[in-house]
Amino acid sequence: MLDIGAKLGPYTIAGRLGAGGRGEVYRAVDGRSGDEVAVKVLPDRYAGDSTARGRFKREVRALMTLSHPGILRIFDFQTVDGTTFAAMELLRGETLGERILRGPIPWVRAIRIGIDLAEGLAATHAKGIIHRDLKPDNIFIEENGNSKILDFGMARLEMAAADDSDSSPVKTGPGVMLGTVPYMSPEQVCGLPVDWRSDLFSYGCVLYAMLTATVIFSRRQLVSSMSAILKDAPPSLASIGVEAPATLEAVMQRAVHKDRELRYQSASEIAEDLRRI
């Protein structure tokens, strides 16, 4: 844990914002510009080297060149004295997960958030970056109502870390399955190679979570959840007493199609359909 006043390259730690499985986050001041930034220090288990980690670094660097309102901006990514960290835009607000805990989001608001997210995804997919773990906890709603996607590529990094560790708690079949089960795509559940359309499936699950404050394929047992992702039809909004335009439900249903060939083929297509509602 870094103390207040500690230096990380050009950044001076000004306070602690929180911690999660993917690292500790600090509020810091960039000594060069005086701007406040968020600094995420990656856990040691991510510090080694592997093909996946190399790819992660390339993805982060690609994200650094991307300035999109729907994506958390990354300004810097480096390792100083053995500490790997990323300097990012400092956000004020709450995660979508926290917001959903207070109840469903009215569909007009869900559409606005949905458009922001779809546009953000479209921009990153265009750079060949896949999120792999899109879920409400990885989406941030700023105080001004704008939404941003966080933690791109982190799932890939976790996979790399898990590959190198004997104590990895979850391993399945031929591939390693990591992420948050109820939001995984069928191809992720099966451990198959994923492409950008896997994010679109997770996106559909997030849309459903916003509208209903429930997790579409969540079941009491992990295995049952995985089975639901592979087999169960998504329940209609009306069946759980949520009223929303049929066109919005159609977007959600198409996004969570089990067959990725029959899913939306791009996030920008989703954004366009949402704008039409």
């Binding site: 948050t180 089960v181 109820p182 979570a209 404050a213 969540s218 009491r220 049952s224």
Partner: peptide, 17 residues
């Protein structure tokens, strides 16, 4: 304490029998 947690389904990792 927070009935809305029940609606969100929390996490499949917590699987009460």
């Amino acid at each position: 304490l927070n009935p809305s947690l029940n609606r969100i389904g929390a996490s499949a990792a917590v699987a009460p029998t």
